[in-house]
Amino acid sequence: MSAAREIFVDTGLHAPLSAVAKKAGVGQGSLYRHFPDRVSLAVAVFDENIEELEALEERPESSLDDLLSLIIEQALVSKALIDLITADIDDPRVAHLGTRVQAVVDTLVARDRAAGLLAPHVTGADVMLAVSMLAGVLGWTPAERRPEVARRAWALFHSAFSGPSAAPTTPGAAATS
């Protein structure tokens, strides 16, 4: 799994699986016995990213801003995650990742709305659309420009989503960490 993560981070989702097997020190046959195709391997690798989002949701002080910052941080380091989410959205193996992210988003939207941090018109579907738009843009943005693009997108999201009692924050603070 760690070999696949490294290869995917460096090369993208379409990296040769032979490179993953070589990095892991196993034969391609062994890799294919555990993961019959590229999507199966990628879903297993990026399941850990979704677990990070779910852990963030479990902390009562977490907000939608925290979630967007973490998603941006994850997207900045892995084009493969972006590729997986945007290229195979209808694949049931990928769709469950989206369902889990949607559950996190819905929880944080409700929490932020109750705290007056989120404008009443913003829905979980709006946040998911914004995340999809961000993933698409970061997917074709050269790696060296992704942090700046992510900061600008974060500022737009924050402005569009903030409710009347939201405190101003520094756009993209987590994206630069």
Rank of each mutant, 00 (worst) to 15 (best):
119 A>E: 14
80 A>Y: 11
99 T>G: 07
121 H>A: 11
102 Q>N: 13
105 V>T: 08
115 A>K: 11
124 G>I: 10
82 I>E: 14
72 I>W: 12
58 E>L: 11
128 M>Y: 08
63 S>E: 12
86 T>L: 11
128 M>R: 15
81 L>C: 02
65 D>L: 07
138 L>H: 03
114 A>L: 10
92 P>F: 04
91 D>H: 14
90 D>I: 05
91 D>L: 14
79 K>F: 06
131 V>Y: 05
106 D>V: 02
87 A>K: 02
71 I>E: 10
117 L>G: 11
61 E>G: 07
125 A>L: 08
108 L>I: 07
119 A>G: 15
130 A>C: 02
113 R>Y: 07
131 V>K: 03
58 E>C: 04
128 M>E: 06
126 D>R: 12
83 D>Y: 00
109 V>N: 07
80 A>P: 09
54 E>M: 00
82 I>H: 10
56 L>Q: 09
67 L>Q: 04
91 D>N: 15
128 M>C: 10
94 V>H: 05
99 T>F: 07
84 L>R: 09
68 L>F: 11
93 R>C: 03
68 L>K: 06
106 D>I: 10
65 D>I: 07
58 E>V: 02
108 L>H: 08
110 A>V: 15
70 L>N: 00
118 L>V: 01
81 L>Q: 14
92 P>C: 07
137 V>N: 12
117 L>S: 09
89 I>W: 06
88 D>M: 13
59 R>I: 05
117 L>N: 14
101 V>C: 06
72 I>T: 14
98 G>T: 09
88 D>Y: 15
125 A>F: 03
74 Q>G: 00
91 D>M: 13
93 R>D: 07
83 D>Q: 10
93 R>E: 13
84 L>K: 01
67 L>V: 06
84 L>M: 08
58 E>A: 14
100 R>Q: 02
